[in-house]
Amino acid sequence: MGLTKTSVRHDGFDATLFPAADRKGKVVITLSGSEGGLRHAEKMARHLQGQGMPALALGYFGTGETQEFLSRVPLEYVDAAIGWLRGRGYQRIAVEGLSKGAEYAAAAATTFSEISCAVLKTPAWFYGEGIMKGAPSGASCWTYRGQELPYTPYRERSFPSKRDILRRAEYDILSLNAKRYVRQASAVPIERIAGRVLFFSTEADTVWPSSESAKKLEDRLVREGFAYPYPYEHVCFDFMSHLMLEDANRLVRVLFRSEREHPRECAEERASMSSKMHDWLERVW
């Protein structure tokens, strides 16, 4: 398949489109995590394209055409992408977000009613503080119409260095993200999504407690007698790491002990995740 590229300098966002034949009934906007750039978002989109689903890999910081840091990122990037896709004949729009991208995807899906499906991988149940030059930024990750979304700050004001992570032989920053005092105003209003929601989490997460977080989001969908009117599901794995890429490379074994100790189980869980998501996008959405 050929690629169509667009730049924030011309259309208000920075992305790569992965089309699927002449199919335009559905399209997925993919959003990767705190590493920034487009590399992982493109890997996610390319995987969907291989399953026959068109996808738009959207960069929201660190792309060269967007801001440098993960702080005060405007939701308008997604809004611009929606308008661009609609202008090219795409009809139903979903978002797939991984890690911080899941947080951004949730913020977008609760804001823009055009999004009728959200796939959230290792999500957080609240909006967090931004990151700038390897430290908390003192501002929200996200903005809309120039205003910061309410956020919960980090307890610690410095992060482990790359040297510390290499010495541990494990990308483990769970202490930064677990047992934080969460400001209630920063909780993700997940019930505002006008469509289907699929959560993926893992018990082996060493970045933040994604299984607990996804359960909190799931619980919020149905509480106090309110029934969420759309299908939703939470799938929690045992061995896969925080980096929930279907086509993960050997780097995951360098970064995560569970991936090194349970390579077969992690591969099986990735295949299961891919199958589940394909079924969800094709049949449930």
Rank of each mutant, 00 (worst) to 15 (best):
Y104S: 01
E129S: 11
F112K: 06
G130N: 07
L98K: 00
F159D: 06
F112I: 03
F126M: 14
L98Q: 02
G146E: 10
C141K: 12
D172Q: 09
G97P: 02
P123F: 12
A109H: 04
A118I: 05
Q147A: 12
T152A: 02
G130D: 01
T122D: 12
A135S: 15
W125Q: 13
Y104A: 02
A135N: 14
Y104G: 00
A107I: 02
R168G: 10
E103W: 00
S140R: 03
V119H: 04
R157H: 08
G101Y: 00
F159K: 04
W125T: 04
L98D: 02
A135L: 15
Y104Q: 03
P153N: 04
S158D: 08
G134C: 13
T143A: 13
A106N: 05
F126S: 04
R155I: 03
G146R: 09
D172R: 11
I165V: 12
E103G: 06
F112Y: 14
Q147Y: 10
P160T: 06
Q147C: 10
R163P: 00
A124P: 08
D172N: 15
G101D: 05
P150A: 08
G101I: 01
Y144Q: 10
C117A: 14
K162N: 08
E148L: 05
A109S: 12
T152D: 02
E170L: 08
A135C: 15
S161K: 07
W125H: 15
Y151V: 02
L149D: 00
